[in-house]
């Protein structure tokens, strides 16, 4: 693949689209930010892209629940188009609100893409932080799913979260066990030494410290932390204390995605 093309979906209340575009461009992708209304009008727009990104924000105000209204819109208008997109070997990334949308449409954890569109049959969801409050803080993430093409499987990364509804929950212990055993857990919250722990290590009380999920293909990733907010050295909260050379941790997610498309599609 010569030129990797990414589409960043906009909708009312989405607000991390520009910096997500910037991060993808740093990784070498050509990026368009497109309003979901255009895609609903003509789903063939998606054919021209290799990476579909649902960026962060508060789509439709997170009214009812985070990501719910946008998820409802996608299920009723874009289910087939997104199934086709994933089936053709392309990548989907959901960050923060985008992750919430992916889970609430059933795209994640998604078994073979089969659960998409089943709004009432969810086994996993994302709900209010245990603190009951919006929190902006930096967290360490341990990679957990080797098949996920966005991830460096051996590298712990440091990224900011900024959300009020980031607690990953499973309907019951079987559902949680399935996430684990089927390798759906992409990232876990850990401390600087790689150990799981209570707040603030796990900033929202997620079950099993889950910070991100992937589907069975490994080509769909959703995560609460914001990789696009750490692609420049000065975005680190105490960059003045860091070694000059270190590459910002958020870069790897976008670089891996673009490199995967380049070498595979």
């Amino acid at each position: 693949m010569e030129q990797v093309k990414a589409i960043v979906l906009r909708a009312a209340g989405v607000n991390c689209d520009l910096e997500t575009q910037h991060a993808l461009e740093l990784a070498g992708a050509e990026v368009d930010r497109i309003h979901i209304n255009r895609v609903i009008e003509d789903t063939s727009i998606l054919d021209g892209y290799h990476i579909l990104v649902f960026p962060g924000g508060f789509s439709y105000g997170d009214d009812v629940a985070a990501g719910k209204i946008l998820a409802n819109q996608i299920v009723h208008h874009l289910t087939d188009a997104i199934k086709k997109f994933i089936a053709s070997g392309k990548l989907v990334l959901g960050i923060c609100n985008g992750f919430q949308v992916l889970v609430k449409t059933g795209i994640l954890p998604g078994v073979n893409g089969g659960d998409i569109g089943s709004l009432s049959g969810q086994a996993v969801s994302i709900t209010d932080n245990d603190s009951g409050k919006f929190e902006d803080r930096w967290v360490y993430l341990a990679p957990a799913a080797a098949r996920c093409v966005f991830i460096d499987p051996d590298t712990r990364i440091y990224l900011p979260i900024a959300h009020a509804e980031g607690k990953v929950v499973a309907k019951n212990s079987d559902a949680l066990e399935e996430l684990r055993s089927q390798g759906h857990v992409a990232f876990r919250y850990v401390d600087a030494d790689g150990e799981e722990g209570p707040f603030p290590v796990n900033p929202n009380g997620s079950m099993d410290s889950i910070a991100g999920l992937t589907d069975s293909t490994g080509r769909v990733l959703g995560l609460m932390p914001h990789p696009e907010r750490y692609v420049h050295r000065t975005q680190h909260p105490h960059w003045q204390r860091l070694d000059q050379q270190s590459l910002p941790d958020g870069r790897s997610i976008f670089d891996n995605a673009v490199n995967y498309v380049r070498s595979t599609l």
């Binding site: 607000n15 991060a23 919006f134 902006d136 803080r137 907010r229 692609v231 000065t234």
Partner: peptide, 17 residues
């Protein structure tokens, strides 16, 4: 911490450091 002080990706000196 209840405010998103990093959205838009431009923060250089954050309120907490």
């Amino acid at each position: 911490r209840q405010y998103d002080h990093e959205v838009q990706g431009g923060s250089v000196i954050k309120p907490l450091t």
